[in-house]
């Protein structure tokens, strides 16, 4: 896990369960996901197979599917789950305070 700064990413109610949001900060682009249980997670936004943003993909449970080639990732850990994705994505610490989602970058 990173030892960076907490950065406000979005309002907590900006995301419904099983929804995704793109969040850009500095040179980074992330995807924020809300799980069916209501938890918030953040991983690198670009698929590790080709540079396609995962925020445009669909969510099923805890899995994000890349909109272009259907590689899948567990958004809780960044783990690559199905080909053609085979490289894990970095995951980031997330907390919710005063109805705002913060990501440690």
């Amino acid at each position: 896990m990173s030892t960076g700064q907490w950065v406000a990413a979005c309002a907590a109610d900006a995301l419904q369960p099983e929804e995704l949001l793109r969040f850009d900060h500095g040179g980074l682009t992330l995807v924020i996901a809300r799980s069916p249980e209501g938890g918030y997670f953040a991983i690198d936004g670009h698929c590790s197979h080709e540079k396609v943003h995962l925020a445009d993909g669909i969510v099923d449970g805890h899995i994000i599917e890349c909109p272009k080639h259907f590689g899948t990732f567990d958004y809780r850990t960044g783990e690559a789950r199905a080909l053609p994705a085979c490289i894990d994505l970095r995951s980031y610490e997330v907390k919710v305070e005063s109805d705002t989602v913060f990501v440690k970058i």
Partner: peptide, 11 residues
């Protein structure tokens, strides 16, 4: 654009 159509086609 991929972002506009991919989710809909997938569903």
């Amino acid at each position: 654009s991929l972002g506009a159509i991919a989710k809909e086609i997938r569903w």
